[in-house]
């Protein structure tokens, strides 16, 4: 039975590790600046944890087989422990786990402790059951104030822009997030109803949109392309279909798109 257990534990461990290692169901290819450090730290953690996982499970299989009752009546090693060993492995795990953590925290600090550069593109993201809306401030760089009582998607004002605010003239709202490549973007996340979470896997970006809060986040896309946006926080029956698109375009394309949107907006006034 000891041998069976050893084989089962080792097989489970090796097969699991194999599939982790070949990375068959990989993360979506990275397309943001801050994600480089995240991904490389992911791999560091992967290797450290992988080694511990292999050592622990292979060791477990080996110990149960090696220590099986062989029916030879030999005495067990009567021992209540070994203080020296306990001190060593306690210190070792403390160094590995807490050290790993401290070494990696700067990545979190770099993306979260500082705000966006003043030159960052500003977009406001609004989540509501079950859609994402993206508001651009237009040429004046200011978002007009919003009022909840004005929120009405059927009249084309899903985010509740107050037209009496002069800054509203050039604000426009889209269903697709369009951003220029290699420019920092500052998103301001809000929600109208329940908690949603803006998840852009290729950007290594996830942040809850919490009703009552305006949460500012920033990131820089580095690859032109189209990326799916999901909702990552359970928000009701349509949670699974609350998705959007991020289109990252070249700077000239972005300017053309922006100008077109501004023109459309003014024409509709």
């Amino acid at each position: 039975m000891g041998l069976v257990l050893l084989v089962v534990i080792w097989l489970i461990t090796l097969i699991s590790t194999y599939y982790f290692a070949i990375d068959k169901w990989a993360m979506l290819p990275l397309a943001s600046a801050h994600g480089v450090a995240m991904d490389s730290w992911f791999h560091v953690t992967y290797i450290v944890v992988g080694v511990v996982f292999l050592a622990a499970q292979i060791g477990l299989g080996w110990v149960v087989w090696k220590s099986r009752d062989r029916g030879d009546g030999r005495p067990v090693s009567y021992s209540h422990g070994n203080t020296k060993m306990e001190v060593v492995w306690t210190a070792l795990t403390a160094v590995i786990f807490i050290g790993l953590n401290l070494a990696g925290e700067r990545i979190w600090a770099e993306s979260r402790f500082q705000g966006a550069a003043p030159s960052a593109i500003k977009v406001e993201v609004t989540g509501l059951q079950f859609a994402w809306y993206f508001r651009y401030p237009g040429n004046d760089g200011r978002f007009a104030r919003t009022k909840p009582e004005l929120e009405d998607a059927s009249v084309g004002n899903a985010v509740g822009i107050d037209d009496e605010d002069p800054a509203a003239k050039d604000d426009f709202v889209t269903g697709t997030l369009v951003l220029p490549v290699d420019r920092e973007t500052e998103l301001t996340l809000r929600s109208q109803d329940v908690i949603h979470s803006l998840f852009i896997p290729a950007m290594r970006f996830k942040q809850d949109a919490v009703p009552g809060l305006m949460i500012k986040m920033h990131f820089k896309p580095t690859q032109v392309g189209e990326y799916e946006i999901a909702c990552a926080e359970l928000c009701g029956l349509g949670h699974y279909k609350m998705h959007g698109m991020l289109k990252v375009v070249s700077q000239p394309d972005y300017e053309r798109w922006l100008a077109q949107k501004e023109a459309d907006k003014l024409a509709s006034e």
């Binding site: 699991s16 995240m38 944890v49 622990a56 979190w108 290594r204 996830k206 990552a232 926080e233």
Partner: peptide, 24 residues
């Protein structure tokens, strides 16, 4: 065995810079 396997995914989720991707 399960305690070890389940515990070792903890260090990924406990690091906020990795949890960004893995959360939820």
């Amino acid at each position: 065995s399960l305690f070890v396997s389940g515990g070792l995914s903890g260090p990924f989720l406990a690091q906020p810079q990795l949890d960004i991707q893995l959360h939820d």
